[in-house]
Design a protein around this nucleic acid. Structure first.
Length: 430
RNA sequence: GGACAGAUGGCAGAGUGGUUGAAUGCACCGGUCUUGAAAACCGGCAAGGGUUUAUAGCCCUUCCAGGGUUCGAAUCCCUGUCUGUCCGCCA
């Protein structure tokens, strides 16, 4: 959500910022609504002042036992005009707010210009991709008998997968491992949030009103969370957080639900793009001047888990055309998938600045000061569990027998086994 | 799902139609006292908006939200949301 005052004072800067988002200049129409609103407001307030004054007098006359009829008639005459102005003010204000709520965040100056993901700029690279092409994860999983899209489709339709045996456990192991890293080594507080979310909270993080089509809705008009960014960030909605308690760092391991409405035909095979997937999310709430450093820190936390898994990755800063609605700046981490022979997104870390905080009215008050200010919010995947599973399957694939080696750090979570194999699946089935 | 109760400033909590934007306590800020601190005492302390060179003044709005009654609403009426308690059902 944008601050109309900022737009009033910096109309050119605002238009330039929207232009980077591929939007027409907005300020003149916004400011016209704004000045019209203020005009109506001033007029209305003059009448309200008159009414208040007269009402006070009526009270005094009545108290003294006099006849206030004349004064009462005078006030009654004001009412019609006031009702009209109130109605106009409400209409203009609603329209202004709707426009403001639909505009994306202003991007940071160091976000590179670019049209789409091809123009993202690499900032880190870690690990050496193995040259050998492997089968894709779903080929490996199906061959093992532990990844079954058909059975999932039977009960749930397309874009669902049923995992079993070693792969089901591997998914769980990844989630546990990420959570333990972030809580024990990175200082995040583990949260187990609700998965059904109300309109207001979805508005707060920016999924509404523009992206309703990407979400699932329940029969009681809740939304299924598309990411635990929503509940984790909304922890501070409507709050005034003591600045001594910042930064706050939350993490959660939850399913995420997405329609993938705009992705028809993309990644239709396998687990890359599903209606339901697990993700470990990181959310930070910081004082305004801390958020840029926190953004780098958060990125480091996400990269750390991939390093521990020894999965090659590269990190890019998203260009202007690829940066999401609520973000001021976003890093994506892309993990190497030997089955596809390319890097694929596994984490997205965004600094939202005060954009979400304004929408959800999340503030902080420096100690001893009267004035509150909006917090900054950040979110990042730490990392997407479903895609991490794919990466492990392909990067730890053993072409000799079609099995999957267990990464060292996951062994404690896998009952100490070294490898997932087909024999294992069969013996478990037997 | 049924019944009842409630929603007031950072927090707790008064306030049932007329100088109530709101008692009181806590927290916070300034001061007196003190070597310093604590205690005690004195004073201050809501937010948003309009107007404005102004963080001065003046004005408006806000006691969950939206509508209504009234010259006038925190206070009365209706609708909605949320919270709590009890009952039912239930992992």
């Amino acid at each position: 959500m944008h601050d109309i005052k900022f737009i009033r004072e910096n109309p050119e800067a605002f238009d330039a910022a929207m232009q980077r988002r591929g939007k027409q200049p907005q300020s003149s129409s916004l400011l016209q609504m704004d000045s019209e609103r203020r005009e109506v407001q001033t007029e209305l307030q003059t009448l309200q002042a008159e009414r208040n004054e007269a009402s006070k007098k009526i009270g005094e006359i009545k108290k003294a036992g006099g006849d206030a009829q004349e004064a009462m008639d005078a006030v009654a005459a004001l009412k019609e005009k006031m009702g009209e102005l109130e109605e106009r003010e409400r209409t203009i204000a609603n329209s202004l707010n709707q426009h403001l709520a639909g505009l994306p965040n202003i991007m940071a100056d160091d976000v590179p210009d670019g049209a789409d993901e091809d123009e993202n700029v690499e900032v880190h690279k870690w690990g050496e991709p193995k040259g050998d092409k492997t089968p894709e994860h779903y080929e490996i999983g199906e061959a093992l008998g532990m990844m079954d899209a058909e059975t999932a489709a039977k009960m749930s339709g397309s874009r669902f997968t049923l995992l079993s045996g070693g792969l089901a456990r591997l998914e769980r192991a990844l989630g546990m491992f990420f959570l333990d890293m972030h809580t024990q080594e990175h200082g995040y507080t583990e949260v187990s949030p609700p998965l059904m979310i109300k309109d207001d909270a979805m508005f707060g993080t920016g999924q509404l009103p523009k992206f309703a089509d990407d979400q699932f809705r329940t029969t009681r008009d809740d939304w299924l969370l598309p990411t635990s960014e929503v509940p984790l960030t909304n922890i501070v909605s409507g709050e005034i957080v003591d600045e001594d308690y910042l930064p706050r760092r939350y993490t959660a391991f939850t399913p995420c639900f997405r329609q993938e409405a705009g992705a028809a035909g993309k990644d239709t095979r396998g687990m890359i793009r599903q209606h339901q997937f697990y993700k470990v999310e990181l959310v930070s709430v910081t004082a305004p001047e801390e958020s840029e450093a926190e953004h780098e820190r958060m990125l480091g936390c996400a990269e750390a888990v991939l390093k521990k898994l020894e999965l090659p990755f590269r990190t890019v800063v998203l260009c202007s055309g690829d940066t999401g609605f609520g973000a001021r700046k976003t890093f994506d981490i892309e993990v190497w998938l030997p089955g596809q022979g390319r890097y694929r997104e596994i984490s997205s870390c965004s600094n939202c600045w005060d954009f979400q905080a304004r929408r959800m009215n999340a503030r902080t008050r420096p100690k001893g000061e009267k004035q509150t200010r909006f917090v900054h919010t950040l979110n990042g995947s730490g990392v997407a569990v479903g895609r991490a599973l794919i990466a492990v399957i392909e990067n730890y694939y053993d072409p000799a027998d079609g099995g999957i080696f267990i990464p060292e750090v996951l062994k404690p979570y896998m009952g100490g086994i070294e490898k997932i194999t087909k024999e294992q699946a069969q013996s478990e089935a037997a």
